[in-house]
Design a protein around this nucleic acid. Structure first.
Lengths: 154, 154
DNA sequence: AAAGATTGACTACTCAATCTTT
DNA sequence: AAAGATTGAGTAGTCAATCTTT
């Protein structure tokens, strides 16, 4: 379905636009990141979460909720980041089942290098199409779509 | 990054909201579809494109542009749909390199069964959060993000 | 039993290389 | 050479089963 002929039902039209716009903007930003030699977007999110948690360390299941990732999916993502040396896993004192994840110095450095590239990319792919007020409206409307209780993926 | 603490830069906030909302709405709709025993969303799109082309038949590279899929990706998607009997491939008279894709009767029937389920799902996940006017605004803002020349994916 | 987390087997995606026709 | 399309090899995502601790 081309954007030119959106359905007349405004809800369905919004769906089509959401899928289209999301797809094109996100893949454009991904492409910029990988062209700069960076790992995928998700890595940034994980690093950010780990860094912005004050009491150094996050449990995997917490990340799962924040990043909307399935458990097994996160498990393998962490594996890769571990192997790459950007995160570390520590045993959890209060709960023998879990682990505590922390960022390494390399992880912090990587995120610091990634940010300006992604920021510029986002500004380019969104900021050049919308004014500030429009961006605010868009943001408000999109946030309304996010359920409070983000049902665990799968 | 939680929705609660969006960045102050409206452009970046819109980006975060787009990723979040897109992710949650799309995966909710996917889940409804697969709970109903249907193949993935992309199949619907392909069937729809093939059905809505008047002169029975579309070339793969045309679908590529409309669906924002990479060539190799589409190639394998078509393979699966072919094996499942929903589309058929015919030799192309004017261009020996390509093929012409057409929907089969089974394909048309499948799309007919899928539509009410997806429609209801979309109404539930978008329509229950936004009024008609809001949906229209959202749609307009999202469409602004879609580049005219959708640079071929990869 | 339920929660946190991982793993095996399978499916799908990605990149680069390839093939055919134009 | 360029365009349309496919394929092999590697990587990542998915589902169900599993394991450990609570």
């Amino acid at each position: 379905m081309r954007v030119e002929d959106l359905p007349t039902d405004p809800i369905i039209a919004a769906w089509v636009a959401l899928v289209r716009a999301g797809n094109s903007v996100i893949s454009a930003v991904r492409a910029d990141g990988s062209a700069a030699g960076f790992p995928p977007l998700e890595w940034y999110d994980v690093l950010w979460e780990l860094e912005s948690t004050p009491e150094g360390g996050v449990r995997p299941f917490e990340l799962e909720g924040r990043l909307l990732l399935a458990q097994y999916n996160l498990s393998r993502l962490i594996d890769r980041m571990l192997k790459a040396g950007y995160v570390a896993k520590q045993p959890c004192p209060e709960d023998g089942r879990g682990h505590i994840l922390v960022v390494t110095e390399e992880g912090k450095a990587l995120r610091k290098r990634m940010w300006p590239v992604y920021r510029a990319s986002i500004e380019r792919h969104i900021g050049s199409h919308l004014g500030e007020a429009e961006a605010r409206s868009l943001c408000r409307l999109l946030v309304a779509l996010i359920p409070e209780k983000p049902g665990r993926p799968k």
